[in-house]
Computed example of a mutant assay.
Amino acid sequence: MTSMWVGERVRLRAIEPDEGEVFLAFEEDTDAARNGWRIAPPRSAERARQWAAELAAKESDLDEVKLVIATRDGDVPVGMINTHQVHRHHGTFAYGISIGTSHHRKGYAGDAIVVLLRYMFHERAFQKAEAWVYASNDPSLALHRRLGFVEEGRRRRGRFAAGRYEDEFLFGMTTEEFTERYGRAL
């Protein structure tokens, strides 16, 4: 049996109710939290448990997903990936991804993105994916270029973090570009 949710290195899956503290630990790295989106005030272990339990109990949406990135071998949670700004009429969506610092540079992010895009393009019939990347996040900029995303724009001074304004880059990939590079669905 083959699952479309399994890549070369990762498996995308729902969060389990007892995994809150795993993701709470990822939030301790300020630079990683800032690169992912923003720094939030500390939350308690109890609130993290509640968050995971609420997310685990929530009914899944077909287009707006929030998934755990787990290692293919061992099922260890290494991060999360989600879709947002889903526009069914236009066939476009954006996504965000966050990998725990101790799991960086192992190919998990790129593999998770390919698995998610294969689902969104080949199962949900979307025609374009978008990702915003902060100018200070050099690894993510390099990752998106390496995956074949096209740099479509730059929002100057679109974000404030670490006491300064910085630019955001918009990357896009169409279903045709994806299919040419990664092939059809399983």
Rank of each mutant, 00 (worst) to 15 (best):
W51S: 03
E180D: 11
T175K: 13
V86N: 01
K66S: 13
L12R: 04
R47V: 12
E168Q: 15
E54S: 14
L55M: 10
L147Q: 10
F121P: 13
M80Q: 15
L170W: 10
L67F: 15
V22L: 06
H90T: 02
A185R: 11
H122D: 11
G172H: 05
A53C: 04
E8H: 02
E177Q: 08
F23C: 05
D61M: 06
I69G: 04
P77L: 02
D138F: 00
S3P: 05
I113S: 06
P42C: 08
L170R: 15
V65C: 13
E130I: 00
W51V: 06
G20F: 12
A33T: 10
A94E: 15
H122R: 13
E151F: 00
I81R: 07
S102E: 15
H122V: 06
W51L: 07
T83H: 11
N82S: 15
R154T: 02
G91D: 01
G36L: 04
T92D: 05
R105Y: 01
L143V: 07
A56V: 07
P41M: 03
H87Q: 02
V68F: 09
E54R: 14
T101N: 02
H103Q: 00
H90A: 00
D75M: 05
A131L: 13
E180R: 14
S60D: 15
L116D: 09
T175I: 10
V68S: 12
V65P: 12
A57I: 00
T71R: 10
R43E: 10
R156A: 14
E21R: 14
I81F: 09
R184T: 13
D138T: 03
R105S: 02
R43Y: 13
R164D: 11
S98E: 07
R124E: 01
A48C: 08
D138S: 02
A56Y: 10
G148P: 09
D18P: 01
E28K: 15
V78L: 00
L62N: 10
R164N: 10
F126M: 09
H89D: 02
K128A: 01
I81P: 07
A33I: 07
W37R: 03
R157H: 15
G96V: 05
D167C: 09
E8A: 00
